[in-house]
């Protein structure tokens, strides 16, 4: 899986907005928290949910597998629904 567009993540004072770049049409923006911005960063290159989960587990060792898994699945499903995420 990989992002359909390249995104520029803008830090608007602790709130993050991801803006797609690459073609001449503005597709809207994604509003994210800090973890969402990190997941998006991981999705710039071809990866798998398991790899992203492992990355987040290492980054946030205090969180349980279940917490990370649920948040990750919700976010990935959102990206899939919006047509932003492509691939297997």
């Amino acid at each position: 899986m990989k992002l359909k567009y390249e995104f520029v993540v803008m830090d608007m004072g602790g709130e993050y907005s991801a803006v797609p770049v690459g073609d001449d049409t503005f597709h809207g923006i994604l509003k994210l928290n800090a973890i969402g911005a990190e997941i998006l960063e991981q999705l710039k290159e071809e990866t798998t949910p398991e790899k992203v989960h492992k990355y987040l587990k290492e980054k946030y060792p205090e969180s349980t597998d279940k917490e990370i898994g649920e948040n990750l699945v919700n976010f990935l499903n959102y990206l899939l629904k919006e047509g932003i995420l492509v691939g297997p």
Binding site: M12, S17, V19, G28
Partner: peptide
């Protein structure tokens, strides 16, 4: 207003 509200 905050920038993030007006960014789009």
């Amino acid at each position: 207003v905050s920038a993030s509200d007006m960014l789009p």
